[in-house]
Structures are given as C-alpha cells and as structure tokens.
Design a protein around this nucleic acid. Structure first.
Length: 204
DNA sequence: CCCGTGATACACT
DNA sequence: GTGTATCACGGGT
C-alpha cells in the first residue's frame, strides 16, 4: 500500500478566499526539519490579512516594499518577518500571484519533537507558553527569517504543511477580532481571527 | 501596567 | 544619506 498523500498541495493555498483558507488551516500540521530533526505542531489559531480594505495588512492597498514583496507571490509561500526586534512571525501567503494576502499562524499544539522545541525556547517543562503565540511558536519550530519566500509546497524544504488527522468541524471554529492591530481603525474589530474553540494551546 | 529590541518605512536633508 | 516613529510580541511587575 502506498502512503496517502499527506503534504498540502499548492492548490489549497492559491484559493482567493483567505478567510476560508484560514479556517481550513485549523487542525493541519506545520512541520520543520532542520539537520534531520523534525518538529511538528497542529495549527489551532490563525489570522487572515488581505490587501483590499484591510488596514492591518502589511500589503494594504497593494503597497509593495522590500519586506512585503513576498506577500504578492503565489499562494503557498512563507512570509516571515521580525516583529518588535525579537519575534519572528510566520505567515502563509494565499491567493494568486500579485494579490497581497496571507494567514498568520498564531498558535500550535505540539505534536512531535517537544524536547527540541523546549530546548529552542530555553524551557524545562511542557507548558502552554511553548507555542501559544506567533513569536513563541516560530522560536519553538526553529523558523528563520531567511526562509521568507520559501515555497512550502516544494519538497524537500525545511518547512511545509501536511493534512492533520483531527480537523475541527465548523461548529468548533470560533471567530474573533485579531490581536495587536489596534492601529488599523475599524478593521481591528473584524472577526478575522480563527481558533479551535476551547483548545488549551491558544494565545492570550 | 511597562518595556526591551532592531528592522523597516518613510520623511526629510 | 540620515533621523526617527512605529511595530500582526512576550515576559515580567
């Protein structure tokens, strides 16, 4: 028996509805492999960003800069940037080329490689703060800013996504306002944050 | 509540 | 080219 195709294909990410992609990313697995060491996390919290009308989006109104250029790549690429001088934030670009939209991964449930994640975070014991937040999960997974622009669907990459085995039903997906975007005026209140309701690994 | 941290974006020479 | 306000955070008080 051949193994089922587990890696999430490009067609998943190139769809134009970033809200739908954000919802469907819940329950999927984010995987990194560095020097043969693999870490796996189940996505439990996402946020959507889109250039059209969304003032919280770095690509708002089609604004292209050196940093945001990768947001205009075809869906399925990584957009990684440094926030507040310390934290690497990992996003997945969505949609067609030349449209700036992406999904921020905000929290993971550790699935595999917890000892290495703990080491990267300088922690002794498994507790929520290991991966509950976009900056901490990037550190736990060993995500590097140099990976921005990487094609997440092109093996063998250091980072990719696979279908998870526990996908939440629509009833178990909660929507709320995005975190930390108060500067974006009325857009800050849009319910573009998606979580697996009640999951213990959520941020905040 | 407070603040470290450094890249980035953009205004202005 | 240079100055500087800002930031999709996290940890501690």
């Amino acid at each position: 028996m051949p193994q089922p195709q587990k890696r999430i294909p490009k067609s998943f990410f190139t769809r134009s509805d970033v809200l739908q992609v954000s919802r469907e990313l819940l329950g999927q697995h984010l995987i990194t492999e560095i020097d043969g060491e693999r870490t796996v996390g189940r996505i439990v919290e996402t946020e959507a960003y889109h250039q059209d009308g969304d003032k919280a989006c770095h690509a708002y109104a089609g604004r292209r800069t050196k940093r945001t250029e990768v947001m205009f790549m075809e869906g399925g690429h990584a957009y990684i940037y440094l926030c507040y001088g310390i934290h690497h934030l990992f996003n997945i670009v969505t949609g067609k080329a030349d449209v700036g939209s992406a999904v921020l991964i905000r929290a993971l449930e550790p699935v595999h490689g917890q000892p290495l994640m703990l080491e990267r975070r300088g922690m002794e014991r498994l507790e929520k703060r290991l991966t509950a937040g976009p900056g901490t999960l990037a550190q736990a997974m060993g995500i590097k800013k140099a990976w921005t622009g990487t094609d997440l669907t092109d093996p063998p990459g250091p980072i990719w996504l696979e279908y998870g085995d526990q996908i939440p039903s629509a009833d178990n997906i909660a929507e709320s306002a995005r975190i930390g975007v108060g500067y974006a005026g009325e857009c800050a209140q849009w319910p573009w944050r998606f979580t697996i309701a009640g999951n213990p690994w959520l941020s905040r």
